[in-house]
């Protein structure tokens, strides 16, 4: 049996409200809030990036796992905002954690799915008996083009999971993946902002893959939506995951703990993994959790976890997601946001 031995998250303290962004572009804030179920999003400080978010989240995961970082055999960082085009984020993270030098690292990229991609690889490496522990991180400081719909949701945050084969806080029950070549969202080399297919990102992209992976894992395990205590679907906004849950036959009681996007935004590679972390903050021993990610391009990874007694022991060894999300927020205006996110052209 393999599963999660420790988890941790990091959310930057700054927030910007939908009204503040809409004001600048002459957009209808009420329409965004109602239409996309978005109220505000996290904004990274000027000295935060994918590497720093990853390290701070991973340190919380190490605290919960209570392991020696030297025992971590692999470190995978999933992101679409790696700080360097060429130079791994994984080595920075491994060095900061004290996992070097006997460790395998790789940077993964698959739009919003890169975080669960790392989890999939980490779980299977441990299952194969290659290493006692592996670390998978989903972290992003995503950018939407100024004035684009994505600017209201592109947020920053990270979730880290240490997987192992003993002392599990959540056991892995099963996995299933679903991928096709779907051009709904991309960013070319040297392009600062991504492009997306507008409405095409909905049904033929997000729903097709999320539903495909969910139905496949339910069939594989011979389970029904009502067998689960919790579900987490990728959260590009507050609307898509709620609609997906309802169409698939899940209820608000199952998705409410994992649904963070209405006040967090979309943390891309960190999105559904942070929802899993928030659910682990609440789950009771024996309860079942369904996690389904989505990454444009496109694909979904589905996982089923079962919480154990140990989850109760490790939970309070690091800050909970809701604490990081709801407390000590710093609200900023668009000017500071544009400066923080380097949207202002300066003289060289």
């Amino acid at each position: 049996m393999v599963g999660i031995v420790g988890y941790g998250t990091h959310i930057p303290r700054s927030r910007i409200k939908v009204e503040e962004i809409a004001k600048v572009w002459g957009a209808d804030a009420a329409a965004f809030k109602k239409g996309l179920n978005l109220n505000e999003k996290s904004v990274p400080a000027p000295d935060e990036d994918c590497a720093t978010l990853s390290v701070n989240a991973a340190r919380n995961a190490v605290k919960r796992a209570g392991i020696d970082p030297q025992d971590i055999g692999a470190v995978y960082v999933g992101s679409e905002s790696h700080p360097y085009a060429v130079k791994p984020t994984g080595t920075i993270v491994s060095e900061a954690l004290g996992a070097c030098p006997y460790v395998h690292t790789a940077d993964l990229e698959f739009a919003c799915k890169a975080g669960t991609e790392g989890m999939y690889i980490a779980l299977n490496l441990v299952k194969a008996g290659e290493m006692p522990y592996a670390l998978a991180i989903g972290a992003d400081t995503s950018q939407g083009a100024p004035g684009d719909a994505l600017e209201y949701s592109a947020a920053a945050g990270a979730a880290a999971f240490i997987v192992g084969a003993e002392d599990l806080a959540a056991e892995l029950v099963d996995t299933h993946c679903y991928m096709t070549d779907t051009p709904d969202f991309w960013r070319r080399e040297h392009a600062h902002y991504p492009q997306h297919g507008g409405r095409f990102t909905g049904q033929p992209a997000y729903e097709k893959h999320v539903f495909g992976a969910t139905n496949a894992i339910l069939e594989k395990t011979n389970m029904k939506p009502e067998d689960f205590d919790y579900c987490i679907f990728h959260q590009p906004n507050g609307k898509f995951p709620v609609n997906a849950a309802k169409k698939l036959g899940f209820t608000e009681a199952q998705y409410k703990y994992g649904l963070l996007s209405p006040t967090l935004g979309n943390t891309y590679s960190g999105s559904s993994p942070m929802g899993l972390a928030a659910t682990l903050d609440e789950a009771k021993p024996g309860e079942l959790i369904l996690l389904v990610s989505y990454g444009s391009g496109s694909g979904s990874d589905a996982f089923i976890f079962r919480a154990t007694e140990r989850l109760l022991e490790i939970r309070d060894k690091a800050p909970r997601v809701r604490k990081q999300l709801d407390e000590h927020k710093i609200y900023i205006e668009y000017g500071a946001y544009a400066k923080f996110r380097r949207k202002i052209l300066k003289a060289d």
């Binding site: 303290r13 000295d47 590497a51 720093t52 701070n56 360097y84 920075i92 800050p319 604490k323 060289d348």
Partner: peptide
């Protein structure tokens, strides 16, 4: 302390990381 970006050597140079102090708010 938290792990943060300390400095970067221009737009194309290396990025320097390290610890910085933050208020201890249990986050």
């Amino acid at each position: 302390t938290q792990f943060r970006r300390i400095n970067e050597e221009g737009k194309t140079g290396m990025i320097l990381y390290g610890f910085k102090f933050v208020p201890d708010l249990g986050l």
